[in-house]
Simulated scan of single mutants.
Amino acid sequence: MARRVDARLDSPKGLRTSFVPRLGEPSDRFGRFTESIARAMGTPWFLFVLTVFCALWITYNVMAPDGWRFDSAALGFTALTLILSLQASYAAPLILLAQNRQDDRDRVQIEQDRQRAERNLADTEYLAREVVALRLVVKDLASKDFIRAELRSLLEELDRDKKSETVD
């Protein structure tokens, strides 16, 4: 027993695991276990195996000699009915637990998507404001056509001034 305690103390707290969760300590192991069972129950392979099991059960209890039968067809295969009822009584809560866990994951994903969309919207609005600011700055700048037109008008004025000086 002392060796087991020492081994637990040698490992970091996050690496120590036990199947039974301690009070106040959240454990995800049972949730993962229920999801794996629910995932397995939702497959065609599970339905096939369950069908083969029931067919073998019924065939054995109908065809076997009377002394070897353990579930009577006259009583409606009571043991088989109880086994299937027990399986169903555990399957439903396990499936609901798995669905609740998936709903929790979906909620977290939706929240992360909403936050990402808000950030994208804020970034887009910022970039739109920057583009508008650049357009305003560019609007105030002289374009090539404007500069050419101004230079042409200056050249025309200089030509008129030269002509007026030569005429005088």
Rank of each mutant, 00 (worst) to 15 (best):
A122K: 04
S85Y: 04
L94M: 06
T43V: 04
N61P: 03
V49W: 11
S85F: 07
D106S: 10
T59P: 02
R105G: 10
Y126N: 08
R8G: 14
T34I: 00
R119V: 03
L97C: 00
R22M: 10
R119N: 03
Q87W: 10
I37L: 14
F70I: 04
A55E: 05
F77A: 03
S164T: 08
T51M: 07
T78I: 08
R129G: 09
F70M: 01
Q102L: 05
D123W: 02
T166Y: 06
L82K: 12
D159Y: 06
V137Q: 14
A133V: 12
A40C: 11
E35I: 04
L94C: 01
L127E: 15
S18K: 15
K162P: 00
R148D: 01
A149C: 09
D113G: 07
L56S: 09
V20A: 09
A128G: 04
T51S: 11
T59H: 02
L15M: 14
I110C: 10
D113R: 13
R8V: 07
D104C: 09
P44Q: 11
N100G: 12
R105A: 11
L56T: 13
I147Y: 08
R3A: 09
V20I: 06
P12G: 07
F146S: 15
E25P: 10
G76E: 11
D106G: 00
V138Q: 10
P12Q: 03
I147A: 01
E130C: 09
A128Y: 05
G67V: 07
D104W: 03
Q99F: 02
Q87D: 13
D71R: 01
G76F: 04
A133W: 08
K163G: 04
R32L: 12
L56E: 12
S153P: 03
R135A: 02
F53M: 00
E156F: 04
D168A: 11
V108F: 11
V5F: 05
E157V: 00
E150C: 08
R101S: 02
A2E: 13
A40Y: 09
R16I: 07
R135V: 04
L15E: 15
T166I: 05
A38R: 06
R3G: 10
N120W: 13
T17S: 12
R119K: 04
E130T: 08
D161K: 01
F146A: 15
T17D: 11
D140Y: 05
A128I: 07
S153G: 05
I110N: 06
S143Y: 04
W68H: 13
R8M: 12
I147T: 05
E125F: 09
A2L: 13
R16A: 02
I110Q: 14
I83N: 10
V52E: 14
W68N: 06
P12T: 01
I147H: 04
D106R: 10
Y60G: 05
L96Q: 12
G14Q: 13
L9I: 03
R8F: 08
R160T: 03
